[in-house]
Design a protein around this nucleic acid. Structure first.
Lengths: 337, 337
DNA sequence: GCTTCCAGTGGGAGCGCTCCCAAAGCGCCA
DNA sequence: TGGCGCTTTGGGAGCGCTCCCACTGGAAGC
């Protein structure tokens, strides 16, 4: 028997009528709730199939006060920050975890004023069951918003200067320290650093790790030379470095993009990597592998970061109280150092 | 006067009561609808402010039958396809356009069976106002689903073998042709091709463009050597190429990732780019710029693609009937060819 | 002065679902 | 045979909003 092609979506009432039961029973059958006889459950299932019924998520959301969606908010003053493949990997992880919990993923790039405003509205109106916040900068308005709001919020990476109740982070300090120690263990003594933005906690923490390692080895840390995590800024920083400190023999860059930029500059200056200048990056994304030479870098578990953020949010939505998480990093040694 | 900190969200009824008007008037005032006196409009605005009222989007959605969200679905048999920075850029564009229309972006990675099933449910249940579909493969179940469903659907890139009613694509054939002609104009005569997946229309179209150019120049096109758009597959294909056709002097790769892989293999084989083998890619993403040497590649307007898809979807949602769009590509000449 | 018109207003019926609760049915034991 | 406790059932009241419509009163037109 061919299924009808309904112009309008059938409602639960129509299913109930067709199955010869009340709406309540139909609802219970649909949700696998108890107190439904086998016969009626099957009748409902049949009616659902014949009518091609699909429950209306909006109506369900209104009744249950649960939207069935979680938002991932990427802050930043410029939407292009999102072009960093880092976020795509986070999303892959988060999406998988949300799938398991049957939550949809809403993606908010809070880059423009308008975007930020829409995020605020989303949070205040409970347009989602919870929010994951990423890439917050110092004094980011979203930080304040987050704890004014009556909604589960998980931070991806800690915001500058404060540890929120729930977050997932990676061991930025430890990773940066290990990277720098690796350079030192290679016999490098004039190891400079190309920092990420110092108005982000990741940028600061990675500088601290570098500094710790240098001081620990009895070496003088270089002052922070700040980039903005882009390839260009890495290239520019490296140029400044070569100009100011021509004798530099090692560089730790706070991410792969900047390391790739540094590589480019070093090459253009006619110096060899790693013979003259050894370079270590941070992230271990695709850029590290296609760089020439392939980049020694701090591997961080990016998909796991996304996955754990989502899982933490799901736990929160279910009324649990998970504990913050700091994921380990490890050094991936390749040719550049 | 301090604003109250409401435990529960205030409703429109409470706003109306506080403002001394009916719910209808409050609703009209809120939506800037006519038939509200200046005095009452202001009273409502005051009450909104005092109560910190934010309308409940779910209730609104139920009443208006509009969810206020658009979904971007990325198909594929493996979630890691999404790690391609291409999609991030599409999202940046789409997000901006959706922001303008006050639509939220739902992101669905339809990689697992579960994911596909959830997408189907989303489409059948009108869980979004419309859908943008990307990265469809041959016989992708989503293609069929798309036209069974009573919902605006915009395709990003055409599906294999059929031109849907509404799509935004880039000129894959033209771009590939131009890339190949560039290699030929450089005096290369043994120009091979590393195809993308031939079960995608982009993969096929780019091969067609290559083939057209070769035939047009009176040269023998190489048979399609298929990769899967990843760096690794590009490297492997290049290795096979060097083994089978050691005299190859030009390569067109159907995207930058594969071109970067090819570069790596050529380098490892001790040949020089572009002196021995000239390489052209497709996409013009970050990878093209950090490659060594920087990659000559076909620039495609990726953010525009996302933006136009979103705009087309918005038009559709608003009851208009936009026309399909094919965006131009252009060759970005760098050092690799 | 009367009708006509229309901006302004509020009541009420949805939108499609969940869930509480009262009522009914049905063994089963005393 | 009555009563107890269980599962099963369906009615109905929400969830918070939009929007139709009937109603009011004052300005405009004749």
């Amino acid at each position: 028997m061919a299924e009808a092609v309904p112009r309008r979506h059938p409602t639960l009432d129509e299913v109930a009528e067709r199955a010869g039961v009340s709406r309540s029973v139909a609802s219970r059958a649909l949700n696998n709730a108890p107190h439904v006889s086998r016969a009626k459950r099957e009748a409902v299932e049949r009616a659902v199939r014949q009518l091609g019924y699909v429950p209306n998520p909006t109506a369900r959301a209104l009744a249950t006060r649960q939207t069935g969606a979680a938002a991932l908010v990427v802050s930043g003053e410029d939407p292009s920050i999102f072009a960093d493949p880092f976020f795509a990997r986070v999303i892959v992880g988060a999406s998988a975890a949300l799938d398991e919990a049957d939550l949809h993923l809403m993606l908010c790039l809070a880059a423009s004023d308008r975007g930020r405003k829409r995020v605020e509205e989303l949070m205040r109106s409970r347009g989602a069951d919870g929010v994951m916040l990423m890439a917050l900068r110092e004094d980011d308005p979203l930080t304040r918003m987050a704890d004014e709001v009556q909604m589960p919020v998980v931070f991806g990476g800690r915001p500058v200067g404060s540890a929120p109740r729930w977050y997932v982070d990676v061991d930025n300090v430890g990773g940066a320290r290990e990277a720098t120690e690796h350079l030192i263990s290679l016999g490098r003594r004039r190891v400079a650093v190309i920092c990420g933005r110092l108005d982000t906690e990741a940028g600061r923490a990675r500088y601290r790790g570098y500094r710790d390692a240098m001081l620990g080895a009895g070496l003088d840390p270089y002052p922070p030379l700040e980039g903005d995590f882009t390839e260009r800024s890495g290239a520019a920083a490296m140029a400044a470095l070569l100009a100011g400190h021509p004798d530099v023999d090692g560089v730790f860059a706070a991410n792969d993009n900047m390391a790739a930029g540094a590589l480019r500059t070093v090459r253009q200056a006619g110096r060899r990597v790693p013979a003259d200048v050894a370079v270590v990056g941070f992230d271990d994304l695709m850029a590290a592998q296609i760089a020439d030479p392939p980049l020694t870098t701090v591997h961080q578990p990016v998909e796991a970061l996304g996955r754990e953020m989502a899982r933490m949010l799901v736990a929160l939505v279910n009324g649990q109280d998970p504990t913050p998480l700091v994921l380990p990093t490890r050094l991936a040694v390749r040719a550049s150092a």
